[in-house]
Design a protein around this nucleic acid. Structure first.
Lengths: 156, 156
DNA sequence: CGGAAGTAGTTGCCGCGTCAAATAAACTAG
DNA sequence: CTAGTTTATTTGACGCGGCAACTACTTCCG
């Protein structure tokens, strides 16, 4: 088996550090949100995405990609949010396969209530630890990594 | 409620991009490893950590922090790995509360078999997309973020 | 029109991770 | 020595996410 190109020392260091972040950050962010607002990050993201729309309304599939989750996961998330009264679901008038999720008043209120604590956690765990220059670098780097499937599925 | 300092535009961009990475990268890495080697990232990390020791042996608690997981998760991971024959567990002779996990021959073989595919996925999803300078930045940034609990739990 | 193929979303099953409680051994005073 | 505390690890209950199968609607094309 022809070994693919191995990682060099810099890459290995970076990878180890990144792996730690990948494991720990989501947990840290999730647990604050869970504890203080009884929401998971993914739930929060969904609420945010909806709130950013003028009509507070989005199709499930669009919502899934915006929130970077699978459709089945999104389906369950929205089901929970609906049960909690934070969103409603209704068939799209133009395409009756599609479902439109709409943020309710109470959902918006929930988001507004949860946001400050979450943002301060994000600030504490991320931006307080970085220089402005590093923030710019992070932006570029994260953008470069943000679409795993692009290169990943060359094997079709 | 006194809103904590909000995020500025750069920070917001960076956060959105990072959030995408935090959601998608672990999934992408996990699914390759799962598909090709029937291991989760966390399992793989545990095997790596053990393999890096001369005696291929580590205490559970140490292993948990090295692999950036909770103790209870680690406990279950090692239980699975033991069931698969990749590690053994035994009481520590000096402190009978502690458990030593040891990598078996077969566990090492598993790791050696899984590594190339995983490394190439890491390369494809991460390092092929970054310049050498970005790799250095990433290293610094990731190190800065790698210890969420430090600042996080100021609220006791 | 009518059937094949594609698209949108949901759900059953199952394994995994978290939380909290339990167990067990090791210190720590009195 | 012994009761109390701390440390190391495991486990039961429970909810969540992934996969694949399924329903329902739409589109394509003859």
């Amino acid at each position: 088996m022809d070994e693919p190109q191995w990682l060099n020392a810099d890459e290995l260091d970076a990878w180890k550090a990144l792996a730690g972040v990948l494991f720990l950050l989501p947990t840290a962010l999730d647990s604050q949100l869970q504890r203080d607002s009884d929401l998971a990050m993914a739930d929060y993201m969904v609420l945010v995405m909806l709130s950013e729309r003028d009509d507070h309304c989005m199709r499930m599939s669009e919502l899934a990609t915006s929130a970077s989750t699978s459709q089945s996961r999104l389906s369950r998330i929205v089901a929970r949010l609906e049960a909690a009264g934070y969103v409603t679901r209704e068939m799209a008038p133009d395409d009756r396969r599609a479902v439109l999720a709409t943020l309710t008043e109470s959902g918006l209120a929930k988001l507004v209530a949860a946001a400050p604590g979450h943002v301060s956690q994000v600030r504490r765990l991320i931006f307080d630890r970085l220089t402005p220059a590093q923030v710019l670098s992070l932006n570029e780097i994260a953008r470069a990594l943000a679409h795993p499937d692009d290169h990943a599925a060359c094997d079709t």
